[in-house]
């Protein structure tokens, strides 16, 4: 391919044709191209970042506290994020370079109805209803939820069951046919609307999740727990500051405060 055959009527001797082959060696060209490709491959970002939008309440002091919706004790689940690291350092797990996350949670009031700090002002460890959990993905074999997700799914069962019903309905064509792309989009829109209705449905019992975090907890844990809210269709959750009681509960659970 890279050769040109030239028929040249050779100079002096008659009737003789001299055949000349001109060959261009492309090897250096390929070498250079490969280097350029390597450069461009390393310099590009193919993956675009994803975004997670959150809305927080304002910091303004609320004058009229009567209008505030208080979460009832039976609906409330408080999740406290923490991490194992030395105070003020960024110690990470040597295995995968991540901070080791710790997740605590308690259902209802801190310390139950009796409260962790009794009327006598002493700490009652027996009332500490704080439990420890983990961020775990679904079980590879059975597909069932584990760790903190299991708890959230158990509490939000009514909503999740309804959403799963809707999913089945969508897949079987209950929201319109799934033949063409336009059809699918229309069906998807209907499904989204129905799902939003279910999430808002006040007749279903669903938890109010309060996310709190110690200063040590990692940013990754915060994103993880916000993900869990999305995965498990939690409609009511908030990010709140740790209270004194929460700190007492955590320290008491760790055995630091008795």
């Amino acid at each position: 391919m890279a050769e040109v055959q030239q028929n040249d009527a050779g100079g002096g001797k008659k009737g003789r044709q001299k055949k000349m082959t001109i060959r261009v060696d492309f090897t250096p060209m390929v070498d250079m191209n490969m280097l350029l490709i390597t450069f461009f491959m390393l310099c590009t970002t193919m993956i675009k970042s994803q975004t997670l939008t959150i809305a927080l309440p304002t910091n303004e002091k609320i004058e009229n506290k009567e209008n505030l919706n208080q979460a009832s004790a039976e609906d409330a689940v408080t999740i406290i994020l923490d991490a194992k690291r030395k105070q003020g350092s960024n110690d990470v797990d040597s295995l995968n370079g991540k901070v080791v996350p710790v997740v605590y949670y308690y259902e209802g009031k801190p310390g139950g109805d009796a409260g962790i700090i009794g009327a006598d002002g002493k700490i009652h460890s027996e009332n500490n209803n704080l439990k420890e959990s983990e961020f775990l993905s679904a079980d590879a074999k059975t597909g069932s939820a584990r760790g903190i997700r299991e708890l959230i799914q158990k509490r939000n069962k009514a909503v999740i069951d309804k959403i799963n019903e809707l999913k089945k309905k969508y897949e079987s064509g209950g929201f319109g046919s799934l033949e063409t792309k336009a059809d699918r989009e229309a069906a998807q829109a209907k499904y989204n609307e129905a799902a939003a209705q279910v999430r808002k449905d006040s007749t279903l019992s669903k938890p109010v999740i309060i996310i709190k975090s110690t200063p040590n907890a990692s940013y990754e844990s915060l994103i993880n727990i916000l993900d869990e809210m999305q995965i498990n269709n939690i409609s009511k959750y908030q990010i709140d500051n740790m209270t004194q009681i929460d700190s007492v509960m955590v320290l008491n659970y760790r055995g630091v405060l008795k």
């Binding site: 970042s49 975004t51 939008t53 959150i54 809305a55 994020l81 991490a83 690291r85 960024n90 990470v92 370079g97 991540k98 901070v99 975090s213 110690t214 200063p215 040590n216 907890a217 990692s218 940013y219 990754e220 844990s221 915060l222 994103i223």
Partner: peptide, 19 residues
Amino acid sequence: DGSGVAIKADQNTSFEVIH
């Protein structure tokens, strides 16, 4: 609408900093 401010932080950043 919230998409105009994007916070980019490392996964190991402590909550204190993000907060």
